[in-house]
Computed example of a mutant assay.
Amino acid sequence: MSARHIAMPEATPLGSVVCGAEAVTLRRGGRTLLDRVSLELRAGEVLALLGPNGAGKSTLLSLLSGDVAPDGGVVKFAGKPIAEWSLVDLSRRRSVLLQDNQLLFPFTVHQVVEMGRAPWRRTEREDEDNEAIAEAIHASDIGHLGNRRVPSLSGGERARTAFARVMAGRTGILMLDEPTAALDLGHQEAVLGLARDRARAGDAVLVVLHDLNLASAYADRIALLRDGAIFACDTPERVLTAETVSEVYRTPVEVIPHPVTGQGIVMPRRG
């Protein structure tokens, strides 16, 4: 069989578990970063990881993506331990945008987005390259950047270029670590709107966020972490209560309903 006829991943039924952690523990420098955490990511959902600084959000994403191996427990991907997957096979099934994604080399915007198609070289899906790249550039609103080189971009433009690279992979699983951190209000909404669209199309989306109200608006489920453990995991309405958020973040908040949507808005209690 030629390399161009490699078996492609099949579409995953909505609601099916695509990856998960089972009682995973991670220690570094004598400190426990994650303590027996279990979590599942399902096709067709946006699952947001929330929590204070140092709670273990990015660490958990790194474990689920296979970038870091746990000291205890197991991470499973498509039903089998992630350690049994090759890096090439993983790269065709999940796309990862890391928090410290640094695009410092003088690549052009187009070249960076094109990197998202690298896993599909010499496969049947290589024929999708041009379409996937063009679609990702348009969706991320970076078409006007033309052949600008990455070092000349603003922080927000770099973030959107990195997001377009992930979108171009068309892997079916998106793992995004703080994708809105460097973006203005409009582009925050646009990026999470795209993530929401991908979930509606059947993709599984795991996203680390700091903004509780963005998570409330776009996530199907929220896993709220504190001190390396999951404090709560459920729908935004059940997780983002004044009592729970105040306890986890150790600061008093109130949750008021949005005047149009009725979704809860988390606000610090002042005065």
Rank of each mutant, 00 (worst) to 15 (best):
M1S: 11
M1W: 12
A3K: 04
A7M: 07
P9I: 09
P9W: 10
E10R: 13
E10A: 14
E10K: 12
T12V: 15
G15R: 05
G15F: 03
V17W: 01
R28W: 13
R28C: 07
G29M: 05
G29R: 08
G30R: 01
R31D: 09
L33F: 04
L33M: 11
R42C: 09
G44L: 01
G44W: 00
E45V: 00
L47K: 03
N53L: 07
K57C: 09
S58P: 02
S62L: 13
S62I: 05
S62N: 12
L63T: 06
G66A: 07
G66H: 01
V74N: 03
V75G: 03
V75S: 05
A78I: 07
A78M: 13
K80S: 12
P81V: 14
P81E: 13
I82G: 05
E84A: 12
E84G: 11
R92S: 10
R92T: 04
R92I: 04
S95Y: 06
N101I: 14
Q102H: 15
L103W: 09
F105N: 06
T108V: 04
H110T: 02
Q111I: 08
M115W: 05
R121W: 15
D127P: 04
D129N: 12
N130R: 15
A134W: 02
E135A: 15
D141E: 12
G143D: 13
R149H: 13
V150T: 15
V150P: 08
P151K: 03
S152I: 07
R158E: 06
T161G: 08
F163M: 06
M167L: 15
R170T: 10
R170N: 12
T171K: 04
I173P: 05
L174V: 03
M175C: 13
M175F: 09
E178N: 05
T180K: 01
T180Y: 00
A181F: 00
G186C: 11
V191W: 03
G193A: 11
A195T: 00
D197H: 15
D197L: 14
A199K: 04
A215I: 00
Y218H: 06
A223T: 00
L224H: 03
G228W: 14
A229P: 08
I230Y: 07
C233E: 08
R238E: 14
L240M: 08
A242W: 11
E243R: 13
T244Q: 10
S246C: 12
Y249Q: 06
E254I: 15
V255G: 08
I256S: 11
P257M: 05
P257I: 06
H258A: 10
P268H: 10
R269C: 14
G271D: 14
